Simulated assay, not measured.
Amino acid sequence: MTIGQFRNDAARLRFLRAYDTVLDRLWPGPRKAVDAPTAFGITRVYRSGSGSGSPIVLLPGAGGNSLMWHRYVPALGAHREVITVDTIGEPGASVQQAPMRDGHDGAAWLDQLLTALDLTSAHIVGCSYGGWLALNHAIDITPDRIASLTLLDPAGFAHPGPRFYRWMIAGALAGLAPRPLRPRLARLVTNHTVLERELMSLALPAAAYRRRLPPATLFTDHDLQRLRTPAQFLLGAHSALHDARQVADRLADRAPDALVEVVPGAGHALPMDRPELVTDRILRFTTT
Protein backbone atom coordinates (compact mmCIF):
# COMPACT_ATOMS: atom_id res chain seq x y z
CA MET A 1 0.00 0.00 0.00
CA THR A 2 1.30 3.45 -0.91
CA ILE A 3 0.45 6.70 0.82
CA GLY A 4 -2.40 9.07 0.07
CA GLN A 5 -1.38 12.09 -1.97
CA PHE A 6 -2.45 14.41 -4.76
CA ARG A 7 -1.68 13.46 -8.35
CA ASN A 8 0.87 16.25 -8.60
CA ASP A 9 1.95 19.51 -7.01
CA ALA A 10 -0.39 21.57 -9.17
CA ALA A 11 -3.39 19.53 -8.03
CA ARG A 12 -2.29 19.86 -4.40
CA LEU A 13 -1.96 23.64 -4.65
CA ARG A 14 -5.29 23.92 -6.46
CA PHE A 15 -7.02 22.01 -3.68
CA LEU A 16 -5.32 23.92 -0.87
CA ARG A 17 -6.28 27.27 -2.37
CA ALA A 18 -9.91 26.16 -2.56
CA TYR A 19 -9.71 24.63 0.92
CA ASP A 20 -8.33 27.83 2.47
CA THR A 21 -10.98 29.93 0.74
CA VAL A 22 -13.81 27.76 2.08
CA LEU A 23 -12.20 27.63 5.53
CA ASP A 24 -12.08 31.43 5.73
CA ARG A 25 -15.69 31.75 4.59
CA LEU A 26 -17.20 29.09 6.82
CA TRP A 27 -15.22 28.99 10.02
CA PRO A 28 -17.14 30.59 12.90
CA GLY A 29 -14.76 32.72 14.93
CA PRO A 30 -11.09 32.36 15.89
CA ARG A 31 -9.14 29.20 15.23
CA LYS A 32 -5.58 28.04 15.72
CA ALA A 33 -4.02 25.72 13.15
CA VAL A 34 -1.65 23.10 14.58
CA ASP A 35 0.43 20.61 12.59
CA ALA A 36 0.96 17.60 14.84
CA PRO A 37 3.72 15.07 14.03
CA THR A 38 2.96 11.33 14.03
CA ALA A 39 4.74 8.29 12.61
CA PHE A 40 2.27 8.37 9.71
CA GLY A 41 2.81 12.01 8.79
CA ILE A 42 1.84 15.54 9.78
CA THR A 43 -1.76 15.90 10.94
CA ARG A 44 -3.45 19.29 10.69
CA VAL A 45 -5.96 20.19 13.40
CA TYR A 46 -7.82 23.39 14.24
CA ARG A 47 -8.36 24.39 17.85
CA SER A 48 -11.42 26.54 18.55
CA GLY A 49 -13.80 27.36 21.37
CA SER A 50 -13.20 27.67 25.08
CA GLY A 51 -14.30 26.27 28.37
CA SER A 52 -12.93 23.94 30.97
CA GLY A 53 -12.77 20.18 31.00
CA SER A 54 -11.66 17.66 28.41
CA PRO A 55 -11.82 18.97 24.84
CA ILE A 56 -13.99 17.50 22.10
CA VAL A 57 -12.05 16.00 19.19
CA LEU A 58 -14.00 15.67 15.91
CA LEU A 59 -13.00 13.07 13.31
CA PRO A 60 -14.58 13.31 9.83
CA GLY A 61 -15.80 10.55 7.56
CA ALA A 62 -13.96 9.21 4.52
CA GLY A 63 -13.13 11.91 2.01
CA GLY A 64 -13.81 14.63 4.56
CA ASN A 65 -11.80 16.98 6.73
CA SER A 66 -12.27 19.59 9.45
CA LEU A 67 -14.62 21.63 7.31
CA MET A 68 -17.49 19.15 7.70
CA TRP A 69 -17.79 20.26 11.35
CA HIS A 70 -18.05 24.02 10.77
CA ARG A 71 -21.71 24.16 11.93
CA TYR A 72 -20.86 22.31 15.15
CA VAL A 73 -18.05 24.53 16.37
CA PRO A 74 -20.14 27.41 17.83
CA ALA A 75 -22.44 25.24 19.97
CA LEU A 76 -19.77 22.80 21.13
CA GLY A 77 -17.13 25.51 21.51
CA ALA A 78 -19.31 27.45 23.93
CA HIS A 79 -18.78 24.64 26.45
CA ARG A 80 -15.38 23.13 25.66
CA GLU A 81 -12.37 23.49 23.44
CA VAL A 82 -13.11 21.88 20.08
CA ILE A 83 -10.38 20.22 18.02
CA THR A 84 -11.28 19.37 14.43
CA VAL A 85 -9.02 16.95 12.57
CA ASP A 86 -7.94 16.56 8.97
CA THR A 87 -7.49 12.79 9.16
CA ILE A 88 -4.17 11.58 7.80
CA GLY A 89 -4.61 10.13 4.32
CA GLU A 90 -7.72 12.17 3.46
CA PRO A 91 -7.94 15.27 1.22
CA GLY A 92 -7.14 18.12 3.58
CA ALA A 93 -4.15 19.98 4.98
CA SER A 94 -2.52 16.90 6.56
CA VAL A 95 0.43 15.22 4.81
CA GLN A 96 0.70 11.43 4.91
CA GLN A 97 4.28 10.16 5.00
CA ALA A 98 3.91 6.46 5.84
CA PRO A 99 1.23 3.88 4.96
CA MET A 100 -1.61 3.06 7.31
CA ARG A 101 -2.14 -0.67 6.84
CA ASP A 102 -5.06 -1.59 9.09
CA GLY A 103 -7.19 -0.62 12.07
CA HIS A 104 -4.28 -1.15 14.44
CA ASP A 105 -2.30 1.49 12.57
CA GLY A 106 -5.37 3.74 12.61
CA ALA A 107 -5.57 3.39 16.38
CA ALA A 108 -1.85 4.09 16.72
CA TRP A 109 -2.14 7.23 14.56
CA LEU A 110 -4.98 8.58 16.72
CA ASP A 111 -3.09 7.82 19.92
CA GLN A 112 0.02 9.57 18.59
CA LEU A 113 -2.09 12.55 17.58
CA LEU A 114 -3.55 12.88 21.08
CA THR A 115 -0.04 12.61 22.51
CA ALA A 116 1.33 15.27 20.16
CA LEU A 117 -1.53 17.57 21.20
CA ASP A 118 -0.73 16.88 24.87
CA LEU A 119 -4.26 15.63 25.55
CA THR A 120 -4.50 13.45 28.63
CA SER A 121 -8.29 13.28 28.35
CA ALA A 122 -10.59 13.93 25.38
CA HIS A 123 -14.13 13.30 24.19
CA ILE A 124 -13.85 11.73 20.74
CA VAL A 125 -16.59 12.16 18.14
CA GLY A 126 -16.19 10.13 14.96
CA CYS A 127 -18.35 10.05 11.83
CA SER A 128 -18.40 6.94 9.60
CA TYR A 129 -14.72 6.10 8.89
CA GLY A 130 -13.71 8.46 11.70
CA GLY A 131 -15.97 6.45 14.00
CA TRP A 132 -14.22 3.27 12.86
CA LEU A 133 -10.83 4.79 13.73
CA ALA A 134 -12.07 5.97 17.13
CA LEU A 135 -13.61 2.62 18.01
CA ASN A 136 -10.42 0.82 16.98
CA HIS A 137 -8.51 3.11 19.34
CA ALA A 138 -10.88 2.42 22.23
CA ILE A 139 -10.56 -1.34 21.69
CA ASP A 140 -6.84 -1.51 20.85
CA ILE A 141 -5.25 1.12 23.08
CA THR A 142 -5.46 1.61 26.82
CA PRO A 143 -8.50 3.90 26.91
CA ASP A 144 -7.47 6.02 29.89
CA ARG A 145 -7.21 9.23 27.88
CA ILE A 146 -10.63 8.84 26.18
CA ALA A 147 -13.33 10.42 28.34
CA SER A 148 -16.11 9.31 25.99
CA LEU A 149 -16.89 8.18 22.45
CA THR A 150 -19.71 9.47 20.28
CA LEU A 151 -19.91 7.41 17.09
CA LEU A 152 -22.07 8.74 14.26
CA ASP A 153 -23.22 5.93 11.96
CA PRO A 154 -19.75 4.37 12.26
CA ALA A 155 -18.26 2.09 9.65
CA GLY A 156 -17.19 -1.43 10.62
CA PHE A 157 -20.58 -3.10 11.03
CA ALA A 158 -21.23 -4.08 7.40
CA HIS A 159 -19.31 -4.15 4.15
CA PRO A 160 -20.40 -1.40 1.73
CA GLY A 161 -22.77 -2.95 -0.78
CA PRO A 162 -24.63 -1.89 -3.93
CA ARG A 163 -27.11 0.15 -1.89
CA PHE A 164 -24.29 2.22 -0.40
CA TYR A 165 -22.69 2.92 -3.78
CA ARG A 166 -26.06 3.84 -5.29
CA TRP A 167 -26.53 6.28 -2.39
CA MET A 168 -23.13 7.85 -3.06
CA ILE A 169 -23.84 8.23 -6.78
CA ALA A 170 -27.30 9.66 -6.08
CA GLY A 171 -25.78 12.21 -3.70
CA ALA A 172 -23.17 13.23 -6.25
CA LEU A 173 -25.83 13.71 -8.93
CA ALA A 174 -28.05 15.66 -6.53
CA GLY A 175 -25.13 17.98 -5.86
CA LEU A 176 -24.95 18.77 -9.57
CA ALA A 177 -28.66 19.61 -9.84
CA PRO A 178 -29.90 23.22 -10.04
CA ARG A 179 -29.81 24.78 -6.59
CA PRO A 180 -33.61 25.18 -6.19
CA LEU A 181 -34.04 21.42 -6.64
CA ARG A 182 -31.41 20.37 -4.12
CA PRO A 183 -33.49 20.56 -0.90
CA ARG A 184 -36.06 18.16 -2.34
CA LEU A 185 -33.35 15.86 -3.69
CA ALA A 186 -31.51 15.95 -0.34
CA ARG A 187 -34.65 14.65 1.37
CA LEU A 188 -35.21 12.09 -1.36
CA VAL A 189 -31.74 10.55 -1.10
CA THR A 190 -31.41 11.25 2.66
CA ASN A 191 -28.17 13.15 2.25
CA HIS A 192 -28.21 16.81 3.23
CA THR A 193 -24.54 17.21 2.43
CA VAL A 194 -25.68 18.28 -1.04
CA LEU A 195 -27.03 21.49 0.52
CA GLU A 196 -23.55 22.45 1.76
CA ARG A 197 -22.69 24.57 -1.28
CA GLU A 198 -19.23 25.61 -0.06
CA LEU A 199 -18.24 22.06 0.88
CA MET A 200 -19.54 20.68 -2.41
CA SER A 201 -17.29 23.16 -4.22
CA LEU A 202 -14.30 21.15 -2.94
CA ALA A 203 -15.47 17.92 -4.54
CA LEU A 204 -13.77 18.53 -7.88
CA PRO A 205 -10.33 19.59 -6.56
CA ALA A 206 -10.51 16.80 -3.94
CA ALA A 207 -11.01 14.24 -6.74
CA ALA A 208 -7.32 14.69 -7.56
CA TYR A 209 -6.41 13.09 -4.23
CA ARG A 210 -5.41 9.41 -4.31
CA ARG A 211 -6.75 7.95 -1.08
CA ARG A 212 -4.80 4.91 0.16
CA LEU A 213 -6.30 4.15 3.58
CA PRO A 214 -7.28 0.62 4.64
CA PRO A 215 -10.92 -0.45 4.27
CA ALA A 216 -13.04 -0.40 7.42
CA THR A 217 -12.83 -4.04 8.48
CA LEU A 218 -15.73 -5.43 10.50
CA PHE A 219 -15.74 -5.46 14.29
CA THR A 220 -16.11 -8.92 15.78
CA ASP A 221 -18.30 -9.74 18.76
CA HIS A 222 -15.10 -10.10 20.79
CA ASP A 223 -14.02 -6.60 19.74
CA LEU A 224 -17.29 -5.09 20.93
CA GLN A 225 -17.17 -6.98 24.22
CA ARG A 226 -13.78 -5.39 24.91
CA LEU A 227 -15.21 -1.86 24.73
CA ARG A 228 -14.84 -0.24 28.15
CA THR A 229 -14.94 3.45 27.23
CA PRO A 230 -18.26 5.25 27.83
CA ALA A 231 -19.79 5.27 24.36
CA GLN A 232 -22.89 6.36 22.53
CA PHE A 233 -23.81 5.20 19.03
CA LEU A 234 -26.09 7.36 16.88
CA LEU A 235 -27.29 5.40 13.84
CA GLY A 236 -29.13 6.83 10.85
CA ALA A 237 -32.45 5.01 10.50
CA HIS A 238 -32.09 5.15 6.70
CA SER A 239 -28.36 4.44 6.58
CA ALA A 240 -27.25 3.00 3.24
CA LEU A 241 -24.19 1.44 4.87
CA HIS A 242 -25.89 -1.03 7.21
CA ASP A 243 -29.22 -2.01 8.76
CA ALA A 244 -29.39 0.40 11.70
CA ARG A 245 -31.81 -1.73 13.70
CA GLN A 246 -29.64 -4.84 13.32
CA VAL A 247 -26.57 -2.87 14.43
CA ALA A 248 -28.49 -1.50 17.42
CA ASP A 249 -29.62 -5.00 18.44
CA ARG A 250 -26.09 -6.33 18.14
CA LEU A 251 -24.68 -3.52 20.25
CA ALA A 252 -27.35 -4.07 22.90
CA ASP A 253 -26.19 -7.68 23.11
CA ARG A 254 -22.41 -7.25 22.81
CA ALA A 255 -21.84 -3.77 24.30
CA PRO A 256 -24.75 -3.42 26.72
CA ASP A 257 -23.24 -0.45 28.58
CA ALA A 258 -23.22 1.70 25.44
CA LEU A 259 -26.05 4.11 24.65
CA VAL A 260 -27.58 3.40 21.25
CA GLU A 261 -30.07 5.54 19.35
CA VAL A 262 -31.54 4.99 15.90
CA VAL A 263 -32.20 8.49 14.56
CA PRO A 264 -35.29 8.91 12.36
CA GLY A 265 -35.09 11.10 9.28
CA ALA A 266 -31.36 10.51 8.93
CA GLY A 267 -29.15 8.39 6.72
CA HIS A 268 -25.42 7.74 6.66
CA ALA A 269 -24.80 11.51 6.42
CA LEU A 270 -26.18 11.79 9.94
CA PRO A 271 -24.24 14.93 11.03
CA MET A 272 -25.64 16.81 8.02
CA ASP A 273 -29.14 15.30 8.18
CA ARG A 274 -29.83 16.01 11.87
CA PRO A 275 -27.26 18.55 13.15
CA GLU A 276 -29.40 19.89 16.02
CA LEU A 277 -30.03 16.42 17.40
CA VAL A 278 -26.41 15.36 17.03
CA THR A 279 -25.21 18.53 18.76
CA ASP A 280 -27.64 17.94 21.61
CA ARG A 281 -26.52 14.34 22.08
CA ILE A 282 -22.83 15.27 22.05
CA LEU A 283 -23.31 17.99 24.65
CA ARG A 284 -25.52 15.82 26.80
CA PHE A 285 -23.02 12.94 26.76
CA THR A 286 -19.93 15.05 27.35
CA THR A 287 -21.35 16.89 30.35
CA THR A 288 -22.57 13.85 32.32
Rank of each mutant, 00 (worst) to 15 (best):
L67N: 03
A39Q: 15
G156N: 03
S239M: 04
T120P: 01
E196N: 14
R7W: 09
D257F: 10
D20Q: 15
L188K: 08
A122D: 00
R226P: 00
A62R: 15
G4P: 03
A78G: 14
R212H: 09
L277Q: 15
T43P: 07
N191F: 11
A206Y: 04
S121G: 09
E81G: 05
L181I: 00
T38K: 10
F157N: 13
I124W: 05
R245T: 13
G77R: 02
G156D: 00
F6N: 05
Y46V: 08
T84N: 06
D249G: 14
S66T: 07
V82L: 02
G103W: 01
A11D: 10
S201D: 12
A252R: 15
D223K: 07
P99G: 02
S66D: 00
S66I: 00
L213T: 09
G61P: 01
A158D: 11
L235F: 02
I282S: 13
V260F: 06
Q246V: 10
A244N: 04
A18P: 05
L67V: 04
E276R: 15
D273N: 12
I141L: 12
Q232R: 14
P275I: 11
A39M: 10
P214L: 06
L213M: 07
L149K: 02
N65P: 03
L241K: 07
W69H: 10
P178R: 02
D105G: 07
R166G: 03
A122G: 03
L119M: 11
N65E: 01
I146A: 13
P264D: 13
E196S: 12
F164M: 05
R187K: 08
L117I: 03
A216Y: 00
R14P: 06
A36V: 15
D105F: 02
R163H: 09
G77P: 02
P37N: 13
T288L: 04
A216L: 02
G64Y: 00
G265T: 12
G29T: 01
W69L: 05
P91M: 12
P60T: 03
S128P: 00
F285E: 03
P275S: 14
G171Q: 13
R12T: 07
A237Y: 09
D153H: 09
T87H: 06
G29I: 01
A172M: 13
H79S: 10
R281G: 11
G41W: 15
L283C: 02
R182S: 04
G106M: 12
P28Y: 10
D144Q: 15
G175T: 07
T84C: 13
A208G: 10
C127M: 13
L185Y: 06
G161W: 11
G61V: 03
R226S: 07
P214R: 09
L241P: 06
L224D: 00
D273H: 10
P55W: 04
L213G: 01
E261T: 09
D9E: 13
R197A: 13
G41N: 14
H123L: 06
N191D: 15
A174F: 08
L202Y: 08
Q5Y: 06
L133V: 15
E90T: 12
A237V: 03
D253R: 15
R228Q: 09
P230R: 08
L199D: 08
